[in-house]
């Protein structure tokens, strides 16, 4: 099904089709990897809203990408509980394992790595989300394995 049809279906679940904006943006991002201007125009058409409106919504939320990202997303929580449990060591481990800083993507375009705010796994620090699947109680020593897993999965 085309994005337009999918979006129309989702819109039916709500009293007001505008409510489909967040789901529509997510769908489009899952399809294209990130929300390029062209993608935003397409979403706007599907929702009968303007591209500017869609952009204003998309740029408000952290999970939408307004710039290209890698095939896989590695997110390390560095909020208080994880931080107290040594999240920065995990961040450093990823940095050396991947050879990129937080916010950057590996040269092969495979993995984008970034730090994020609390993921709601504070009791199981450090929490690392790989493509939004949580890995908990992650220590520096687990990092190599995680990266291997991601690369292996390709």
């Amino acid at each position: 099904m085309s994005l337009v049809e999918d979006v129309r279906q989702i819109a039916k679940k709500y009293p007001d089709s505008r409510s489909a904006t967040l789901p529509a943006l997510r769908l489009a991002q899952e399809r294209d990897g990130w929300l390029s201007p062209e993608t935003l125009r397409e979403v706007a058409d599907a929702l009968e809203l303007t591209p500017a409106y869609c952009k204003s919504v998309a740029t408000f939320y952290d999970m939408y990408h307004l710039a290209p990202v890698g095939t896989h997303l590695v997110e390390v929580c560095t909020n208080l509980s994880c931080a107290l449990a040594g999240a920065q060591k995990v961040v450093d481990a990823f940095e050396s394992e991947l050879g990129v800083k937080p916010g950057e993507t590996t040269p092969d375009g495979e993995i984008t790595f970034r730090t994020v705010e609390c993921l709601g796994g504070c009791g199981y620090a450090t929490v690392v989300a790989v493509d939004h699947r949580y890995k908990q109680k992650v220590g520096p020593d687990d990092v190599a394995g995680i990266v291997g897993e991601i690369r292996g999965a390709q």
């Binding site: 990130w34 952009k55 740029t59 939320y61 952290d62 999970m63 939408y64 990408h65 307004l66 710039a67 990202v69 560095t78 931080a83 107290l84 040594g86 999240a87 920065q88 961040v91 937080p102 916010g103 984008t112 970034r114 730090t115 994020v116 705010e117």
Partner: peptide, 17 residues
């Protein structure tokens, strides 16, 4: 300190450049 050098998220990717 246990929080030495702790990095907070950047707005890269999520905000319009």
């Amino acid at each position: 300190s246990s929080l030495e050098g702790i990095e907070a998220p950047l707005d890269a990717h999520t905000h319009s450049p």
